[in-house]
Amino acid sequence: MSAKIAINTEWLSVCGGCHVGIVDLHEKILDVLGAAEIRHCPVLTDIKGYPEADVGIITGAIRNEHDRHAAEAMRKACKLVIGLGTCAVYGGLPGAGMVHTREEIFDTVYLHNRTTKTDIIPSDGVSPLEKMVTPLDEVIDVDLYLPGCPPASSFIFDGLLALVEGKTPRTSDESVCGRCRRKMTKTDVDRIKQTYEDLPDPDICFLSQGYICLGSVTLDRCLSPCTRMGVTCTGCAGPTLQVLTEPNRDIRTEVGERMARLTKIEKDTVIRAIERGAKTHYAYAMATKMIGGKPTFLINQWIAETETVGAEGGAA
């Protein structure tokens, strides 16, 4: 092979787990490093600027002014930009901050924090928060997307190796259910269970047992570890492509329809339950216009209804 491919990576508003996802390649990373040279990487290289590179991997959403500056600098320095991870592609968990104002967030975190005593909102040397959380592609042009929280290392390896070798990576539109090993059976379950209730059968689909699981509306970029280990899917890799592109498809209506066909629970009951927990069920993708911009996505109304009911002492 001729010259090595130069790679820059950068993290913005993100937990840092996507970089761990890259390191999770273990010895396979040697295959990538054999053909690539990492120039800017916040966890590996001590370099302040953005050297020119062939590929730029950006993780995280745009939450503050530093994020915006770094994203724009990466775009200028890199020929091809990959948005890696759910935060870069959809806004991710930081995106859930959009249902609260900056003032509410500062107040909860710094002024009236229940677990620590602080009374100062930091401002010195800290990049100011922007008003909204913005997915990467609303600020710069993104050439390729790889959602996941983080994407399973096999998807990262496949994607990186395809770039290095100039091949088309294998992609799949399948959902988390595709790799789950639970059996979907029709049952007589007639009420929605919370995840802490009872012990779920390890071989039967969560939906069949009355637990709300987002596996069927979530793109498989994870190899379904949670459902195999007995934990319901929370949708961390973001919605399936049909939920993203079809205006009449949504997380709550799709889960509602499937659950109603598998159990004796009414579709509307499931939809209402998901709306009541909207901050959780839409947490990873609400900042993208592909979800947040849907005219039927009324999260502020759902939150207002839920919190009113809660304040009156009713069941939330």
């Binding site: 390729l144 997307y145 790889l146 998807f155 395809a162 990576p169 992609t171 492509l241 993203l244 592109t245």
Partner: peptide, 9 residues
């Protein structure tokens, strides 16, 4: 938006 999903890895 629909065109974006063609660029998913």
């Amino acid at each position: 938006f629909s065109q974006r999903v063609a660029r998913f890895l």
